[in-house]
């Protein structure tokens, strides 16, 4: 189990940021990703691995309207 924005989410092996975004259907273009407080640049989404128990933040910058 991992935390995504403070809520529980099922972890799986080889979970990358890209995979997590797909699973959550997070398609908004302006987001900020942190794993355990560490900022992950967009260029590393494909490779950055998320481990079981990690605290992940996927912050969507306010938009709409």
């Amino acid at each position: 189990m991992i935390k995504v924005n403070g809520r529980n989410f099922e972890w799986e092996k080889n979970l990358t940021v890209t995979k997590l975004l797909q699973k959550k259907n997070y398609t908004f273009p302006s987001i900020v990703v942190q794993i355990n407080g560490k900022f992950i640049p967009q260029a590393q989404y494909e490779t950055a691995l998320i481990n079981d128990g990690d605290d992940v933040k996927v912050i969507h910058l306010t938009s709409g309207g």
């Binding site: 996927v58 306010t62 309207g65």
Partner: peptide
């Protein structure tokens, strides 16, 4: 009207306003 506040992502998705 949403031009006062559009806070759905901060609240619902980001969970930044607990």
């Amino acid at each position: 009207q949403h031009d006062e506040a559009w806070l759905i992502f901060m609240d619902m998705v980001n969970n930044q306003l607990p």
